[in-house]
Amino acid sequence: MTSKREAVLKAVTARIVGALPGAEVKRNLAKAERIGPGGLVVVRDGDPGEPEVTLSPLTYLYSHRVPVEIAAYESATLPREAVIDQMLGAIGASFVSDRTLGGLCDWIEAEAPVTDDVETLGALPGRIAEFSILAIYATSDPLG
């Protein structure tokens, strides 16, 4: 049986894939070798942190920050800043449309991104944005 943490991480990744159909979406990619024409998204497992614990019934409430990195180049019609902005907007709208992630979470939202340039040898400079998805969920077992 899949743990609640893993189910939330898979659902976050699937939601991003649905929001950005042209992007390459990877989970826990060690080192990006290239940014594809539709952009690259890396979803990391993050740290669920110390849970709040309630007794009777025993419940662990996590505020899990899931780090997300997106990278893109300019398109034929848009500068790289606009491409990143559109990608961020699509991801944000996807999570706003269902704040419970299909019932897996009590609440989910994206936090504000930090953006920067990314340069690779022999390629035009790209743009990267790093942010977290905050998923708040409860489980009866910290490992389950």
Results as ranks from 00 to 15, higher is better:
residue 3 S to N: 08
residue 3 S to T: 13
residue 8 V to T: 06
residue 8 V to Q: 02
residue 9 L to K: 07
residue 11 A to W: 06
residue 13 T to R: 15
residue 14 A to K: 09
residue 14 A to R: 09
residue 15 R to P: 03
residue 16 I to V: 11
residue 18 G to E: 12
residue 19 A to C: 07
residue 22 G to H: 10
residue 24 E to A: 10
residue 24 E to S: 10
residue 26 K to W: 13
residue 27 R to H: 03
residue 28 N to G: 07
residue 29 L to I: 03
residue 31 K to W: 11
residue 33 E to G: 15
residue 33 E to D: 15
residue 37 P to G: 13
residue 37 P to N: 13
residue 38 G to A: 04
residue 38 G to M: 03
residue 42 V to P: 02
residue 42 V to Y: 01
residue 43 V to A: 02
residue 47 D to K: 05
residue 48 P to T: 04
residue 48 P to H: 04
residue 48 P to W: 00
residue 50 E to K: 08
residue 51 P to K: 01
residue 53 V to K: 07
residue 53 V to R: 08
residue 55 L to Y: 11
residue 56 S to K: 10
residue 56 S to Y: 07
residue 56 S to A: 12
residue 57 P to A: 02
residue 60 Y to P: 01
residue 61 L to W: 09
residue 62 Y to N: 03
residue 63 S to T: 14
residue 63 S to D: 14
residue 64 H to S: 06
residue 65 R to F: 11
residue 65 R to T: 05
residue 69 E to N: 13
residue 69 E to A: 14
residue 70 I to E: 03
residue 71 A to C: 11
residue 72 A to C: 04
residue 72 A to T: 05
residue 74 E to I: 00
residue 74 E to D: 14
residue 74 E to P: 10
residue 75 S to V: 02
residue 79 P to L: 08
residue 79 P to F: 09
residue 85 D to M: 13
residue 85 D to S: 15
residue 86 Q to W: 10
residue 88 L to S: 04
residue 88 L to E: 06
residue 90 A to C: 05
residue 92 G to F: 11
residue 94 S to L: 03
residue 95 F to I: 02
residue 95 F to C: 07
residue 96 V to I: 11
residue 98 D to L: 09
residue 100 T to F: 01
residue 101 L to W: 00
residue 101 L to P: 01
residue 102 G to S: 09
residue 102 G to N: 03
residue 103 G to M: 05
residue 107 W to F: 15
residue 108 I to N: 01
residue 108 I to A: 07
residue 109 E to Y: 12
residue 109 E to Q: 12
residue 111 E to V: 08
residue 112 A to I: 15
residue 112 A to R: 15
residue 113 P to R: 00
residue 114 V to E: 10
residue 115 T to P: 01
residue 115 T to V: 14
residue 116 D to V: 13
residue 119 E to Y: 10
residue 119 E to V: 11
residue 120 T to Q: 14
residue 121 L to R: 12
residue 121 L to M: 15
residue 121 L to D: 15
residue 122 G to E: 11
residue 123 A to Y: 11
residue 126 G to I: 00
residue 127 R to V: 05
residue 128 I to T: 12
residue 130 E to T: 14
residue 131 F to K: 01
residue 131 F to W: 03
residue 132 S to V: 08
residue 134 L to W: 08
residue 134 L to E: 02
residue 135 A to E: 07
residue 136 I to Y: 04
residue 139 T to S: 07
residue 140 S to T: 14
residue 141 D to I: 00
residue 144 G to V: 07
